[in-house]
Structures are given as C-alpha cells and as structure tokens.
C-alpha cells in the first residue's frame, strides 16, 4: 500500500466518454493543482464498445509505476465495468457508481448517484453522464477542486458543448455534496474478512 499515491480508476463502456473524463481529471490534478499525474487507459478493440477503463494516478512525488496498484476510487458507469474492475482496493477506498445503470453493488462503502438520470434531466443528453460523474469525483477526491476541473473541462471539450458539459459537472458535484460520507462503513473490505 502506498499512501503517497492517490489512484483512481474510471470505468464504463466504450462511448461513455470514460477516457475524456480521465484526461480532464488528470489535467485538473496535474496542470491546475500542480500534482504529478499519470493517466493511462485501456487500448485496443475494447475501447470501442464493451467495457473500458481509464486510470489516473496522482501524487505529490514523481510517479514511477504509471498504472493503478491499489485503487483509492473506482468509478463504475455500468454493471459490467463494476464487476470487472472491483478489486485491488485500499481499505478506505471508495466505490462510485452510476445507480441508473449499476444495480448490484459489491460493497456498502459506495456512493451511488444516478449520473445518467441527472444528465438527462439537466442537459437532456445522457452522453453528459461522464461529466456529471466527474463533478462528483471533484467533490470526493481530496486532491482536486471543482474549479480546477472546470478549467480543464473548458479546454478539453468542443466549444459548442462547453456550457452543457459545465452544467453537468456542477450537477454532479451538487449531488455528491448531498451524500453523507460519514455514514458509510469505514472499510471497503468486508467486516467478516477483517475478523478472520
């Protein structure tokens, strides 16, 4: 376990904008917050359709190994991705799911927000669910402020979709603020196992 690294894995299906979300998170943390970052993603046929993942490692020290070793946060935008990538957690890690699409939760230490539903309501476009999720991450990840995320987003999305995406981002942050983290179990590792 490496406390100096904060490791985020974003997952979903190809076409949900997972990689774009990861790039914006990396840019917010790396450029606007001044941390060291490494961002990598699944590459190859899986990136089009099916499940895909993108990772961001954030640290105050130079990052050697560029991939996730133990997750601090997993974003799962659909059930298949949640099932596939729910492993290798730090005990105090956090699972973040799109409750519109993920119904079976592997842990109680989970923040479930209906990203897709919020996207539909706020912008009329389900495709902006990735930005809603990113807004939630901005609130939940201690190393990135919402303002940095906004700055990174503005540069990375097409001009004509900027306002819509910003709205989605803010809606996600707002939804996350409504969650009482203190009420969650302290560890993502099941109690039974800890007792063994």
């Amino acid at each position: 376990m490496d406390e100096e690294r904060y490791e985020v894995r974003l997952s979903g299906s190809g076409g949900q904008g997972i990689i774009l979300a990861a790039v914006i998170l990396a840019e917010a943390a790396g450029i606007y917050e001044g941390h060291h970052v490494c961002q990598a993603q699944s590459y190859g046929p899986e990136a089009r359709g099916g499940k895909c993942k993108a990772e961001v490692v954030i640290s105050d020290n130079p990052i050697d190994y560029p991939k996730v070793t133990q997750q601090d946060m997993l974003l799962a935008m659909n059930q298949a991705a949640c099932d596939a990538y729910f492993f290798d957690f730090k005990p105090n890690g956090l699972l973040l799911v799109d409750s519109t699409l993920v119904e079976q939760l592997p842990t109680s230490r989970v923040v479930a927000i209906p990203f897709t539903q919020i996207a539909r309501e706020k912008t009329g476009k389900a495709i902006t669910a990735n930005m809603v999720a990113l807004g939630a991450i901005a609130h939940l990840c201690p190393l990135v402020k919402l303002k940095s995320m906004e700055s990174a987003l503005k540069i990375r999305v097409p001009k004509d979709t900027r306002d819509m995406n910003l709205e989605a981002l803010k809606a996600g942050a707002k939804a996350a603020r409504a969650i009482n983290l203190a009420s969650l179990p302290r560890s993502i590792i099941p109690q039974e196992e800890e007792e063994i």
């Binding site: 790396g30 060291h36 490494c38 990598a40 993603q41 990052i63």
Partner: peptide, 10 residues
C-alpha cells in the same frame, strides 16, 4: 512501447 506511448503525464 504501448505503455509509454499512451500514458499521459504532465
């Protein structure tokens, strides 16, 4: 290699 090629870093 593919890891270096597609990893983004500042």
């Amino acid at each position: 290699d593919e890891v270096v090629a597609h990893t983004r870093e500042t």
